[in-house]
Amino acid sequence: GGMAPYMIAEEKDLLALPDELSYVDGAQVACGFGTVYEGLEKIGISGNDAVLVTGLGPVGLAAAVLSRALGAKTIIGTDAIDERLQIAKDLGLCDHVLKAGSDNVEQIRALTGGHGVERAVDCSAHHAARKTAVQATRKWGKIVLIGEGGTMDLNPSPDMIHDQKTIYGSWVTSTWRMEELLERLVRWGVKPSDLVT
Rank of each mutant, 00 (worst) to 15 (best):
E118K: 01
G44A: 12
S102M: 08
V97S: 01
A69T: 02
G32K: 07
Q107G: 08
F33Q: 00
E106D: 15
I81M: 06
A72L: 13
A50N: 05
C31T: 08
Q107V: 07
G39R: 05
L61D: 09
E118G: 06
D122R: 11
H126L: 11
L40N: 10
C123R: 08
E41H: 00
T54H: 15
I81P: 02
T35M: 01
S124C: 13
I108E: 04
A72Q: 11
I108K: 03
E106L: 11
T137Q: 02
R119P: 04
K42Y: 04
R109P: 13
S102E: 14
A80N: 04
L52W: 05
V97Y: 00
E106Q: 14
A72W: 13
V59N: 02
A50I: 08
D82K: 13
G116K: 05
V65T: 03
A133S: 05
L61H: 11
C31E: 06
G44V: 07
V134Y: 09
S102I: 10
S46C: 01
K131N: 15
V53G: 03
D90I: 12
H127Y: 13
A110G: 15
A80L: 07
K73D: 04
K42A: 05
L40R: 09
Q135S: 14
C31K: 02
S46M: 01
R84Q: 00
G116V: 05
K42C: 03
Q86Y: 11
T74W: 00
A136T: 11
K139S: 02
Q135T: 13
T132K: 12
D90E: 15
N104E: 15
G55K: 09
V97L: 01
D103K: 15
G55M: 08
H115I: 09
L98C: 04
C94E: 04
D103S: 15
A120H: 07
D122I: 10
G92I: 08
R109L: 15
V121N: 09
K139F: 03
L61P: 10
C123N: 11
S102F: 11
K73G: 09
T137W: 02
V97Q: 01
C94L: 04
E83Q: 09
Q86P: 06
K99A: 11
T112Q: 04
K89G: 06
G60T: 02
Y37I: 11
G47M: 09
L91H: 07
A50S: 13
L93A: 01
T78P: 04
Q86N: 12
F33T: 00
V97K: 00
L111G: 02
R84D: 00
Y37P: 06
H96L: 12
K42D: 03
T78W: 05
D95A: 03
K99C: 06
L40P: 08
G34L: 01
D82Q: 13
L85I: 13
L98W: 04
T74Q: 01
